[in-house]
Amino acid sequence: MAETDDGLVLIDQHAADERINYERLKNAFSGETTTQTLAEPVDIELTAREVELFDSHTNALARLGFRARLVGDRTVKVQTVPTMVAESAGPELIRDVLSEFVGGRESAADTVEAAVDDLLADLACYPSITGNTSLTQGSVVDLLSRLDSCDNPYACPHGRPVIVEFDTEEIEDRFERDYPGHE
């Protein structure tokens, strides 16, 4: 909670950190996707629907940084993953990406961009400060400074508000400060 010239603001520290992480990931993912080759390829068993999606989106998956090939009827051998998710999510993330392609979007390019955006929004959530974490004054200042540098500091990537503002008039109305002598 912070006081402003016009009232006060409540800041959701998880949503704020999620926004910061999302924009960092989005910047890292723009342009050429760097990949990390796995020391040992990982086999992932897919459902029949996931195999169908894999077959029709192999190029899109490669654009995201997943190099994989179908071996057998339902097994995908993953050879590379995007560097930015190598440690946090790993090759199993390919299943989540495939499910993002089900959205029925109009074109493959829209589908890939939307899948990337949804994936980044989910990845931004995992390392974010939780709502019940006590922050020191220095970490609050750092969080607010990083939030201030975001393109959209007002909502997390899932659309939840980061900042809720109450102006002085609303606060006075809520405390029924509208009669003489209580200005």
Rank of each mutant, 00 (worst) to 15 (best):
F101V: 00
A114H: 05
A68W: 04
F54Q: 07
S107Y: 07
E100Y: 07
A109V: 13
T80A: 09
V116P: 03
V85K: 11
R69W: 04
S107A: 05
P82T: 04
L61C: 08
S99T: 09
A114C: 03
R67W: 04
D110C: 00
T111F: 01
L98H: 03
E87I: 06
P82Y: 09
T83N: 09
P91H: 05
V102E: 15
E87D: 14
L53T: 02
L93Q: 14
F54P: 06
V102N: 09
A114R: 02
V112G: 00
T80H: 10
G90S: 05
D55H: 07
L64R: 13
V85G: 09
G65A: 05
A108T: 11
S99E: 15
A89T: 10
R105H: 06
V76T: 11
T111R: 00
R95W: 02
L98P: 02
F54M: 05
Q79E: 15
T58L: 06
R105C: 01
V97G: 01
V102T: 12
A109S: 14
R69I: 02
D55N: 14
R63H: 08
G103S: 15
R74E: 12
G103M: 10
T83V: 05
T83Y: 07
S88I: 09
G72T: 07
V85L: 15
R74Y: 03
T75E: 12
T111Y: 01
F101P: 00
A86S: 13
L70Y: 06
V76E: 11
I94L: 15
D96R: 13
A86K: 10
F66S: 01
A109K: 11
R63K: 14
T75D: 06
V97I: 13
D55I: 05
V78L: 10
L70E: 11
